[in-house]
Amino acid sequence: MTLTAERTHRPAAGHRGGGRGGGWQRRETLMLMLPALVPVLVFSVGPLLYGIFLAFTDARSGRNAVTSFVGLSNFGDLLADGDFWASFRIGLVWAVSVTVLQFLASLGLALLLNENLRFRSFARVLALVPWAMPPVVIGLMWRLVYHPNAGILNSVLQDAGLLDHNVDWLNDFSLALPAVIVVGIWTGMPQTTVVLLAGLQNVPKELHEAGHMDGASTFRRFWSITLPQLRPVIVTITSLDFVWNINQFGLVYVLTQGGPGGQTRLPMLFAYEEAFRYGFFGYAATLGVAFVIVVLALLSIYIGRQMREAN
């Protein structure tokens, strides 16, 4: 939802009316800002900086635990930790597949909603519902769908002759991750669809008309007019989706708690367990810092490449 933040360069109209001096105005601005500034500084900027510091310590969860600076040794442990790498691999598979499939599904839906079809407004409303639901309810709902005995998925697939026995989707070693990925796609579709639809509506109609006159086919017009026009929107929303997905926690925690046998233990579930089950605050913070570096690196490669191709 924070896409709005993209609009950074709107010049704020510097208003100096009524002959007031700059100093007076600065003090007034500060007074007005202070109530909002203090909580953000104390409860999120400060903790964030302290969290980065913790990554270089051996902090434990105990109230009176003695913390000492250990330099980069946590990072060394992390690189040698097989469980971390397993979790990291799962996280990448999850984030890339959800982001890509979500994008393709949402693009398809946005293209349909942009056409003059019947029931379009009903479909638009329906497409927004997952956005409003509590993530916990989404997780519980899909657990009902995937339930081995009482779930509808097994029943439907058996009626269609695609299955001959009940499958325990969320407890199967090879099926749990794909099953969770489907829920991830379902959950994130509204935001992506809304953004892509807005992008489509901003593609100038004249371009399409010109393409039509030149005899370009529908597909051809989509490929050489719509997609290039949409590129900035696509890059923005897929980057954000990727960041949101790789940092996902609640949905998967409710669905599988990371099981079976760690097959769906996303990196943030791993970090949560390290911190709040085993009490390794420092180590969990190290994972967080390592993650910021990896995500920023991946994003800059992706965005950089897209920008080069656009030019």
Partner: peptide, 29 residues
């Protein structure tokens, strides 16, 4: 109503808080 540095900081913070995994904030918090 007034031009100020805080505008940019607020926007920056909204973006930064997206990229940083919750674990980095929640432990110290």
């Amino acid at each position: 109503r007034y031009r100020s540095l805080v505008n940019r900081l607020a926007v920056g913070w909204v973006l930064v808080s997206q990229v940083f995994p919750f674990i980095l904030i929640i432990i110290p918090l």
